[in-house]
Computed example of a mutant assay.
Amino acid sequence: MFDLVLQGGRVIDPAQNLNEALDVAFAGGKVAAIGKDLGPAAETRDVSGKMVVPGLIDLHTHVYWGGTSLGVDPDDYARFSGCTTLVDAGSAGPGNIHGFRKHVIERSDVRILPFLNIAFPGIFGLHWEVSFGECSDLRLVNSRVCLAVAKEQADLIVGIKVRVGGGTSGALGIVPMQMALEVAEHMGLPLMSHLDAPPPPRSEVMKLMRGGDILTHCFRPFPNAPAAADGSVEQDVLDARARGVIFDIGHGRGSFGFETAMAMLKNGFLPDVISSDVHLTSIGGPAYNMLVTMSKFLRMGVPLNEVIRASTINAASAVRVQDRGTLKPGLLGDATILEMERGKFTFMDVVGETLDSDEQLACRGIVLGGKWWHG
């Protein structure tokens, strides 16, 4: 007997090329079967008229709640955003990853996969009234210590994070990224690089990135935008994609613009991953959450199947985990139940431009580890 069966929903699983009405069964914490008229279960949920997708993965979040100024509560956020895995984008560094693990990650229901910040204290100075770039002072960036802690926490961390730009690395420019890249190379892990306004220029960052590294805030507005003045895609961005660099949205409070996004989409340049960059100062807008960010791409004409792909299997692949991102039997029993909510919605980017829409994705249930978690 199955533990749980989701009955009558439209299963959308791009990794398996599924987009049809099917039942999904769970047992022992894993996906057990997908098909029609599945056998008896201890619990059956009728999800007719709704979409059943692999558990959503938000690749860029900040959920070291209580340990950093920008953190939000992971379980609360996951419940209303429909996420089963939250990738924390470097909230903690070598000096406080242990606390993040013990006091938040191990105590949360939702799955949390952290990047380790190259800066010793992580992102410690981001608040409504305070903004201090953790990579602007070389005394806070020690690659030897970062490598030692990365090895110690190798069972937990999924990559190395660095923030560079005028507001984050300041006069040090590209130097913290070079140091972070060296640690990532020694660990055999991807680097996730934040890029805000110059310096350094986007082209200097792009040329350092390797295949499998992640550029977050990839559709940021001018300056350092990936789209040229004539609407074309900058050549260094095209070259990076050809090398296998992963392009992640990371919306946040200052890192996503409709003008940039529509120029990139017009050129057929879709993001590899859609993520929210949710934190203290973006959860109340303009990012809000994963579902709002996904809905913005639907409004800009990206097909639903591709939006789901960029929020599930592509995100899992970016952090090199193979046990989630799809509803393939034998993998983690994580699923999100979605519904297209009709109404009047206004979406805003980080510079105040808006798009009106008559639909938005809404979470109607979450299965975590094969059990009904929220709905």
Rank of each mutant, 00 (worst) to 15 (best):
L147Q: 11
L140Y: 08
P94A: 15
F347W: 04
C135K: 01
S81D: 04
L181A: 10
S136A: 15
R220I: 04
L195H: 00
F247N: 10
R79N: 12
E259T: 14
K344R: 13
E182R: 13
P200I: 07
A242E: 15
G8W: 04
Q322I: 03
L86Y: 01
K296R: 11
L215G: 06
F26L: 11
I118K: 04
A27C: 12
W65E: 08
A92V: 04
P14V: 01
E341T: 06
C218M: 05
S143Y: 11
L38Y: 04
K328F: 05
N289C: 06
I34L: 15
G212S: 03
G166M: 14
I283N: 05
H62Y: 08
I214C: 05
W373N: 10
S275P: 04
L189R: 12
C135G: 03
L327A: 03
L6C: 10
V307N: 10
M179R: 14
D356Y: 02
G67P: 03
F222K: 15
K30V: 02
F269S: 03
M348V: 14
S81R: 02
M206P: 04
S131K: 13
G55T: 06
V205L: 15
R202G: 06
I112M: 11
A21E: 12
C135P: 00
A171W: 09
L265Y: 05
G170I: 02
K30R: 15
Y77F: 11
G170L: 11
L332P: 03
D137V: 09
E341F: 07
D137F: 09
G170N: 12
K36N: 12
D37F: 05
F26C: 13
G211I: 08
F222T: 13
D213K: 06
S295F: 00
M209H: 14
S81V: 03
F219D: 13
D248F: 05
L156P: 05
L113M: 06
R210C: 12
N314D: 07
G370I: 00
G90H: 03
M264A: 06
V31K: 09
A41N: 09
N289H: 10
D75S: 09
E359W: 10
R202P: 00
G268R: 11
L215V: 05
R202I: 01
G365I: 09
I214G: 02
A78W: 02
W65A: 06
G167F: 05
H98M: 13
G67I: 02
G212D: 02
G67A: 08
P201C: 07
A225C: 14
I274R: 12
A42F: 08
R299G: 07
D248K: 10
V164D: 02
T168Y: 14
S275Q: 04
S311Y: 01
V87E: 08
F345P: 04
G369S: 11
V5C: 09
P329L: 08
D88T: 07
V53S: 08
M51L: 15
L355C: 11
F345R: 00
L327K: 01
G325S: 02
R139Y: 02
A335G: 01
G166R: 15
P14T: 01
R253D: 15
L338I: 10
G369K: 03
E129W: 03
T84N: 13
G244A: 06
G244R: 08
S108D: 07
N305P: 00
S311H: 04
E20Q: 13
M1L: 13
F219N: 13
A33Y: 05
G159C: 09
